[in-house]
């Protein structure tokens, strides 16, 4: 998409307003944010500060009320639902707090899910999924169902599913929020390795200062506004 150190994510003057009856709730207000290619950015802030909403806007899961969101120079805020779905499939890998694996599919098939939207053959899909599981250290658990895996292992499968299409950006919404300290550390190390060794651009929402220390940059949100950021 773009070269290293170039701006990959460019959020300009974004508002996000939700309506509850006649009341308007301004979740994000005139927010600007740039993320460079290859960065590992932590988004911190109290509950309700708009972190997840911002992540959803960057991931094309939602649209801003005002302002623009451009990824790799491409404006995504004007895409229709179908274009946005195709764009997400190509460019976004999502890691969720509660893993969100499909309980009826084993690890291998969960990781293969995003590949169903590609033109890869069944054999190629299997190979790609096996490679992704290998990266997260779960090559031998490919036939296990989510209920047979620990929380940490489920999150690894979630990460494998997120990276299997080699997306432009990994968006992680509190990826360690449901894990114990040890498993959380392992997941953070994995994300760090993906960032450092494979150059993946990662944006991670977290409440945990310990987790944010693993990122190369941290920005803080409060009441829908960007407060400050710590330098690398």
């Amino acid at each position: 998409m773009s070269n290293n150190h170039e701006v990959l994510v460019d959020v300009q003057g974004v508002d996000r307003v939700f309506r509850r009856g006649s009341e308007e709730i301004h979740v994000l207000q005139k927010l600007d944010l740039q993320v460079r290619q290859g960065e590992f950015l932590a988004l911190m802030g109290p509950s309700g500060s708009g972190k997840s909403t911002l992540l959803n806007l960057i991931g094309g899961l939602d649209r801003p009320s005002n302002g623009s969101v451009a990824i790799g120079g491409e404006r995504i805020d004007g895409l229709n639902d179908r274009q946005l779905a195709a764009w997400r499939a190509r460019h976004i890998g999502l890691v969720f707090q509660f893993y969100n694996l499909l309980p009826v599919l084993n690890a291998q098939r969960n990781v293969e899910l995003p590949l169903l939207l590609t033109s890869l053959s069944a054999t190629q899909r299997r190979e790609h999924a096996a490679a992704a599981l290998d990266i997260v250290g779960l090559k031998d658990r490919n036939t296990s169902f989510p209920t047979q895996l620990s929380g940490g292992e489920q999150q690894r499968v979630g990460i494998a599913r997120a990276i299997v299409t080699d997306p432009t950006i990994l968006l992680c919404d509190e990826p360690t929020g449901d894990l114990d300290q040890k498993s959380g550390d392992e997941i953070l190390s994995l994300l760090q390795a993906l960032n450092r060794e494979q150059g993946k651009t990662i944006i991670m929402v977290t409440h945990d200062p310990h987790a944010s220390h693993r990122a190369s940059r941290t920005v803080y949100l409060n009441k829908g506004r960007l407060l400050a950021e710590n330098p690398e």
Partner: peptide, 16 residues
């Protein structure tokens, strides 16, 4: 509902 949200999030279109 959640799983359908996940499918959409990873790129399944509404029509799919």
């Amino acid at each position: 509902t959640n799983e359908l949200g996940v499918l959409k999030a990873i790129g399944f279109s509404n029509e799919r």
